[in-house]
């Protein structure tokens, strides 16, 4: 069974491109530009990997991370952010983030990281 991934970013292009790339890699991908709706979706369905932006309105990446860690301790989280500071990186890594991507995201690196996360 294909591994499922949820991508959360308020930038539609990020969602679309990530979905296109990862679908071609054989994953099942769901995308959300609205982090609130994404959080609800996470609560009702387990995803093997969560790729989320850090800075978003209403519900931010750290909120998503906390929920995933609580509900599905074995699920992996990849954090992306438009402007990375040391503080956000440390905070994210403390919250057991699998990987941390500052924008601009290199598609090849992302593919590699996803592969590692899902143990392919």
């Amino acid at each position: 069974m294909a591994k499922n991934i949820i991508v959360i970013d308020d930038e539609e292009v990020v969602c679309r491109m990530t979905k296109m790339v990862l679908t071609k890699e054989g994953y099942e991908v769901e995308t959300f530009t609205d982090s609130k709706k994404a959080l609800e979706r996470i609560k009702e369905k387990k995803f093997d990997l969560v790729i989320t932006d850090l800075k978003m309105e209403d519900v931010d990446g750290m909120d998503i991370l906390k929920t995933v860690n609580k509900l599905y301790p074995d699920a992996k989280v990849i954090m992306i952010t438009a402007y990375a500071t040391l503080d956000t990186a440390i905070e994210a890594l403390r919250g057991h983030v699998f990987d941390f991507f500052p924008k601009p995201i290199k598609i090849e690196e992302l593919k590699k990281s996803v592969k590692e996360a899902l143990g392919k």
């Binding site: 930038e11 491109m17 800075k55 438009a82 995201i105 290199k106 090849e108």
Partner: peptide, 19 residues
């Protein structure tokens, strides 16, 4: 942040386009 997002989008679009 403001410039980071569209720049990232362009970068991803370009990389995806080429790939």
């Amino acid at each position: 942040h403001e410039l980071g997002n569209p720049l990232n989008n362009i970068s991803m679009l370009a990389e995806g386009y080429l790939s």
